[in-house]
Simulated scan of single mutants.
Amino acid sequence: MLDSAQLLAELVAVRSVNPLLSTGGPDDERQLGEHVAGLLRSWGVETELQEVKDGRCNVIGHLPRRGAGDDAVVLLTAHMDTYPQGGPSAAYQPVRDGTMLYGRGSADAKGSLASMLAAFHRAARAPDRRESFLAATIDEECLLLGANALAQHHMRPTLAVTGEPTGLVPIVAQKGIIRGSMRVRGPKAHAAYPKPRTAITAATDLVEGVRRINADYAATATAGDLSAPTLTLTRIDSDGGMNLAAEEVTVWFDGRFLPGVSGEEFAAEIVGRLRTAVPADLDFAMNELSFISPPNRCPTGNPILAEFFTAVKDVTGRCEPETFAYGSEAGVLAGFSAASLVFGPGDARFSHGEIEGIDLTEVNAAVQIFERLLIGGVC
C-alpha cells in the first residue's frame, strides 16, 4: 500500500512556485510535473504531458474502465503551483510533527494531490473501476491557465473534483471572479492654476459610485447561500506629478459574482450600473478584463454526486456541503463536466501563510473517499 504521508513529503520537497509569484530564482511547476508523471508511469498509468505555456505542462493520467465499473467518468484535479515559502514551517523541506506535516504547499494543494495520487495508485490495481482521469495542473494561483487548457482535452467527466483545503467538506457552489481596471480622465492642470475638476476628483466620484453599487447589491440580496455580488477596489494609480494634476487615473478592482452570468456579462452590468451612479459628465471606461474565474453551482439530483456525499459521510462521519466566495478551478471544470465541486484535506487558513501544514489523518481519509469514487458502486 502506498504511504500517502511519504508521498506528500516528496511533493512538498519539490519547489513549484508559480513564476508570476516568484521572489527570485527559476520557478515553475516543471520539476514537480516530471515527478508526478514518473510516479504515474511507474504504476502503469497511461500518462501525457499537456503543454500549456513556456514548457509548463499539465500532467494527465488516465485509467480506462475495467471489469464491473459503470459508465461514469471521474476527473480528479489538483494544482501543482504554490506561493513562495513563508517561515520555517512553510518552506520547501517537509517537517513532520505527530499527525501534522508542515511545508509550503502541504495544504494548498499538495495534500489533495497526494491523496488523489494514492487513490489512483489503488484504482490502477483494482479489478473493477470507472474510467478516470487525474490532472495535476499548473497556474491555479494566478491565471487558471492549466484548468483552461484541460477544457481542450477530449475528456468529458460525469463528475470533476478539484482539490483544495476544504477540511473534507464538499463545496458545491462558488462565486465567480473578475479582475481588471477602469480608466478615469480629466483635464491637464498645473497646481499654480488649479481646476475644479480633475481626473483625481473624477475618480472620487467613481469610488462613490462603486460604494452605491455595493449598497444596492446588499439591499437587494436574497437569502441565498452565496449572498450578493460585490465589487472591491484594490488599487489606484495615476500619471500625476509633484505639481501636475493627473490626466488619467486607473482604478483596479476585484468583482465577485453569482452563478448564472458570465464574467463578461457581470463586467457589462457593472458599467451599466456605474453610468447611473456617477455624474453624467464623468469620463470613464472599463479596460479589458485581466482575469476571469467562472462561478460554479453543482447540479442537484446527480446520482454520482449522491454517491460521493455518501462516501464522505461514511469515512468522516458527516457530510454537510457548503459554498464559498474564493477562487478555484471548479468553475472552469464545470464548462466541460456534467458536475463539478471542490473538495480536499486541509485547512484553508494555512494557505499562503507563514505557517502551512496539514493533518495527515485528513489526507488518509481523502484517499479512502477518492478510492471509492474511482471504484464506484462495485467497491
Rank of each mutant, 00 (worst) to 15 (best):
E362C: 03
G260M: 05
Y217R: 10
E329K: 05
A245K: 07
P294D: 11
S262C: 06
H352N: 01
R156V: 00
L341S: 07
L134R: 11
I369W: 02
G335H: 11
A151V: 05
A119R: 01
E10N: 09
T166N: 01
G344Q: 11
G25K: 08
T250C: 10
D205I: 00
A192G: 15
T47G: 06
V95H: 12
S112W: 05
H121A: 08
R56Y: 06
A219T: 03
F266D: 15
A118W: 06
I292L: 13
A91D: 15
R122I: 02
H35I: 03
R275W: 14
E322D: 13
P279E: 08
A78S: 15
P279K: 08
V14E: 15
P299H: 01
Y326F: 15
E320C: 04
N148M: 02
K175I: 05
D205A: 07
V73C: 07
R15Y: 02
D359M: 08
E320K: 09
D139Q: 03
F120Q: 05
A221Y: 09
G344F: 11
L39S: 02
R275H: 15
V312A: 04
V14N: 10
L113Q: 07
I369D: 03
G163W: 06
D128T: 04
T198M: 05
P187Y: 03
S106F: 07
L282I: 03
P279T: 04
R349M: 06
N148R: 12
D314A: 14
M1E: 09
C379N: 12
E141P: 08
L32K: 11
Y326K: 13
W43R: 01
D3G: 13
F266E: 14
G98L: 13
S227I: 00
A189H: 02
G209L: 08
D281C: 07
E322F: 05
V59Y: 13
V251G: 08
A338W: 03
E288I: 03
A72P: 04
M182A: 10
A339M: 05
F266Y: 15
M182K: 06
L226S: 12
A91I: 00
Q85F: 01
A334S: 11
I358M: 05
K188N: 09
A124F: 00
T82G: 10
E269P: 00
S106W: 07
L333S: 01
G327L: 06
V184A: 00
T47I: 01
A147L: 00
F291N: 13
